[in-house]
Write a protein that binds this DNA or RNA. Sequence first.
DNA 1: GCTTGTGAAGACCTTCACAGCA
DNA 2: TGCTGTGAAGGTCTTCACAAGC
Lengths: 209, 209
Amino acid sequence: MTSNIPEVVILRLPLYARVLRGLADRGEDVVSSQRLGDLLHSTPAQIRKDLSYFGRFGKQGRGYRVDHLLRELRQIMGLERQWSVILVGVGQLGKAILTYGGFAPQGFHVVAAFDSDQSLVGTSVGSLTVQASGELAETVKQHQPQLAIVAVPGHACQSVVDMVVRAGIKGILNYAPHQAQVPEGVWVRDIDPVGALQSITYYLKPNGS
Amino acid sequence: MTSNIPEVVILRLPLYARVLRGLADRGEDVVSSQRLGDLLHSTPAQIRKDLSYFGRFGKQGRGYRVDHLLRELRQIMGLERQWSVILVGVGQLGKAILTYGGFAPQGFHVVAAFDSDQSLVGTSVGSLTVQASGELAETVKQHQPQLAIVAVPGHACQSVVDMVVRAGIKGILNYAPHQAQVPEGVWVRDIDPVGALQSITYYLKPNGS
DNA sequence: GCTTGTGAAGACCTTCACAGCA
DNA sequence: TGCTGTGAAGGTCTTCACAAGC
C-alpha cells in the first residue's frame, strides 16, 4: 500500500520540527497554528491540514503543546534514533561535509568515507580513514548504514549511486550535479546550490517577475 | 504584472540546461522531448509544456536543436552574463563555499566576504579578505552585487538577511537553518541538507512508504 | 471566545490526446 | 511517419469555512 500523504507535506515536517525546537528552547509551552504559520511563513490552515495527516495533536481553544508535538513529529520522521551514514567522494566538497558539524547533533553519524582516488585512500579526514570504493559493499554489510551522502563529480554520480544502491542503501543525499536514476523504494534528495542560484536569476532579470 | 509561469517550472529550468549542456558536450545536435524526459526522469509532455511557456523552440517531426535550446534557456534564466555575489558568514561552512570551485564556472563570482567575528576580519580566504559586517552596505553600494550567500548560524540568519535586503540585494542563497522573512520582490532559496536527510528517514522507518 | 480538525471548493500543476507541421 | 505545441481533462495540493470542543 503506497501511502497517500503528499510528499510536500513530508518535506515540510523538518521545518515544523525545527521551529518547534526553537519554541521549546525559549520555554514556550503552547503554540497555535496561527503562530506556527507566522513563524514558518505558511498559513494556519496548511499547518492544521498537514498535521491532521498524522493524528490529532491539538486542543480546540488552546493550540498545540510544543514539547508534545515536537516529540510526535520526531517520532513520525524517525528521528528518535541514530542514523548511520556513509560518504562517497572525499574531494574538497566531501571533506567539507565530513568536517561540517551540523549532521551529528541531529543524529546523523558518518561512519565511513570512500573515494576512488588511490592517493586519498588511507588518509585521515576528521576521525575517519578514507577507504577505497571497492570496499564499500563489504563495509556496508558490516556497519549496516542506512544512508549515503554522494559528493562526487557529476559524471561519476550515476555509477556511485548504483553501487550504493546495490549495497542495500535506501536513502541518498546527492551533492553531485546530476539527477540519478534509482529503483523504486530508494529515496534521493538533491543539493544543488548552483541550480538554486540559476533559478533566482530568472527573477532578477529586468522583467523577471 | 505578476508572471503566471509556475515557479516549479522555473525550478526545473536549471536541470534542463544542465542536461542540454551534457548533450552538447557529447556532440548531439538534436533531442526529442522523449529523450529529454528519459534523461531527466520526467515526461515528454511535461517538458514540452514547460518549454511552451517561453516560446516554440522545437520542430515537429525532428525535436529540439540542442545548442539552440540551451542558448535560449540560458537567456531566459539570465545566465548569459556574469553575476556578482557576496558571502556573509565566513565560518567553516562559509570557507568551504569560498573555496568551492562550482560557482565561478557558471558565472557566479564571489566578490566580497563578511563576518561579524572581529578575529576573522582582515584574514584571507581564497583570494578575498574578510570584511566587517558593518562595511556591507558601503561595499554593496560600490560593487553592486546582485546576489548574497548567507552562511551564518540560524539565530543570526534573519538579521543578516534584513541587512542584505536593506543594502538592495534581491536574491539570496540561504545555508542557515532558518526560514528568513523577506519583502515582496526578494527571492530566497534554502539549502538544507539536514532537513533533506530528515525527510528521507520518514520513508525508511518500517511502514515508511 | 478561541482554536482545532476536516469535508468541500478552489487553485494549481500534470497528463492526455490530437491537430498541425516537418 | 514522427514529433511538437496546446487546449482540455484529470489529479493533487491548498484554502475556505464551519461544526465541534475546550
